[in-house]
Simulated assay, not measured.
Amino acid sequence: MSQLFGEVAGAYHEARPGYPAEIVAAIRAYHGGTPDRLVEVGAGTGLATGTLLGLGAPTTCVEPDHRMARALGERFPQVEVVTAAFESADPQRQGDLPDGWFHDDIAGSGLFTDVRAPLFCRELPLDTAAYLRLVGTFSPQLRRPPALRERVLTAVGAAIDGFGGTVVLDLRTTLVLARRPA
């Protein structure tokens, strides 16, 4: 699935909402200042990277899709971009994952200590056109044949317009913080 997003890397960066600036303060509080180094996993095109660079720490971004990694490197030449998967996929996983699965995976790996996962919530209103651009970057939509993608977008757009032309997203950003044992 991680390779689907590169297909729409430019649209992905333009349509997806950014990340809350409060994550910088949360990272500083966790580390007691600026960390010596920061690793962003699944960096995509750099939506969070721009916010994270506010920390002033040397940053490495790990992104499995070479198209997303290329866009990331072009936007932020000051970061080290590693084009690789952070972990291997677990073939037993299927369907929706439970809330907090990433925290459990990281904490359960034995590779990290002091794993924390603060949650940041906010609302983001989007008009019909902005929401349709966003839907065009979702993996279920990207898996559909082009004709079906268009039918879905037409139906979703009509529904939004029928309800006043605005969708309010309830965004929840989970920041996972962890330390490597010394």
Results as ranks from 00 to 15, higher is better:
Glu123Gln: 15
His103Gln: 05
Val168Gln: 03
Phe120Lys: 03
Phe86Cys: 05
His103Asn: 01
Leu148Tyr: 09
Pro77His: 08
Glu74Val: 04
Val79Thr: 12
Phe163Ile: 06
Phe102Cys: 04
Leu72Lys: 02
Leu134Arg: 11
Phe138Glu: 07
Gly50Val: 06
Ala57Val: 02
Asp99Val: 13
Asp127Val: 13
Leu148Cys: 05
Leu111Phe: 07
Ile106Leu: 14
Pro140Asn: 03
Gln141Ser: 06
Gly110Phe: 01
Pro58Trp: 10
Thr59Trp: 06
Leu142Asn: 00
Glu74Ala: 03
Arg133Ala: 14
Thr49Asn: 09
Arg75Tyr: 01
Glu80Gly: 11
Thr49Tyr: 09
Arg143Pro: 03
Pro140Ser: 07
Gly162Pro: 10
Pro118Ala: 02
Phe138Gln: 09
Ala147Ser: 15
Glu63Ser: 07
Phe112Asp: 03
Gly95Leu: 07
Phe76Ser: 04
Arg151Met: 14
Leu126Trp: 06
Val79Met: 07
Ala84Thr: 07
Leu132Trp: 05
Gln94Ile: 09
Thr83Ile: 09
Met68Ala: 05
Pro58Val: 07
Gly100Leu: 01
Ala107Cys: 01
Gly162Phe: 11
Arg116Thr: 14
Leu111Asp: 07
Arg93Tyr: 06
Met68Leu: 15
Arg67Pro: 04
Ala130Met: 09
Glu150Ala: 15
Thr128Ser: 11
His66Trp: 11
Leu148Asn: 05
Gln92Ile: 05
Glu123Val: 04
Ala130Tyr: 08
Val62Asp: 02
Arg151Phe: 05
Phe163Ser: 14
Thr49Ala: 13
Val135Gly: 03
Arg67Lys: 12
Thr49Leu: 10
Gly56Cys: 00
Pro64Trp: 03
His103Phe: 12
Val115Ile: 02
Phe102Asp: 07
Thr154Pro: 00
Glu87Met: 10
Gly165Ser: 12
Val156Thr: 08
Arg116Trp: 05
Leu55Gly: 02
Gly108Trp: 00
His66Phe: 11
Asp114Arg: 12
Gly162Ser: 11
Gln94Trp: 10
Gly95Thr: 10
Glu80Ala: 14
Thr49Glu: 11
Glu80Met: 09
Asp104Pro: 00
Glu123Asp: 15
Arg143Ile: 05
Gly162Tyr: 10
Val79Trp: 06
Ala159Met: 10
Ala158Pro: 02
Pro91His: 14
Pro64Cys: 09
Leu148Phe: 08
Pro64Gly: 06
Leu55Asn: 02
Leu53Val: 09
Asp104Val: 00
Gln78His: 09
Pro145Lys: 13
Leu53Met: 11
Glu80Cys: 13
Gly110Ile: 02
Pro58Thr: 07
Ala129Arg: 15
Gly50Phe: 07
Asp105Ser: 08
Phe86Gly: 06
Ala129Asn: 09
Ser109Pro: 02
Gly162His: 12
Asp65Phe: 05
Gln92Val: 12
Gly110Lys: 01
Val81Thr: 14
Gly157Leu: 01
Ala85Trp: 13
Glu63Asp: 11
Met68Tyr: 05
Gly157Phe: 01
Ala85Glu: 15
Cys121Trp: 08
Phe138Ala: 07
Thr128Asn: 04
Val82Lys: 09
Asp114Lys: 08
His66Asp: 15
Glu63Ala: 06
Cys61Asn: 04
Asp65Leu: 08
Ala85Pro: 04
Pro140Trp: 06
